[in-house]
Amino acid sequence: QDASPTRESRPRAAERLRPVGPVTVTATSVDWAKNGMMIYTGDVKLSSDTLNLDGDRLELEQLGDGEYRARIIGKPAHLLHSGTPASGETPADPPVTARGRTLVFDSKNGIADISGDARVTRGEDEITGETIHYNVNERRIQAAGGSGGQVRIVIQPNNRAAPAAGTP
């Protein structure tokens, strides 16, 4: 069944980047844990206008004022932060996806912590590492290799300037 807690949208400082709008969660089953945390299991999808998360199990914690912390576990769990079109002189932002065994998104500080074979793509670039922090509001990615491992980034050079023929 579809249980979607409604939250009236209070005008906030219009940080254009923060995901706003109603958040809907769909899952095959839901369970109210005692500390006010709701546990969704089975094909869980949490979507808001710009941010979508999905996974096998969601632990949703309401933080008041409409803020929440969602902890998604999946094999893997996914995150999609849609891109924004270019406006005026600010260039377009490519969509960002993330996946990992565990995604923890805190709507107040707007940071998604991806861990467990974390992999984030921004446009055609791709970052893999042990843990990756994606600041959704500032679209900033910080990755760390974790114990001994290293972060790997594959950047597809967007060919704004035509690449020079041949390499030295």
């Binding site: 992999r119 990755a143 290799g145 980034i153």
Partner: peptide, 25 residues
């Protein structure tokens, strides 16, 4: 590389390895 681009396209790809990285918007 995850998606095994063919040679030419591979040629342009930039591969980075680091202990930690931070990429701004």
């Amino acid at each position: 590389s995850a998606d095994g681009g063919e040679e030419r396209e591979l040629d342009q790809k930039i591969f980075v390895e680091a202990d930690s990285a931070s990429m701004t918007r």
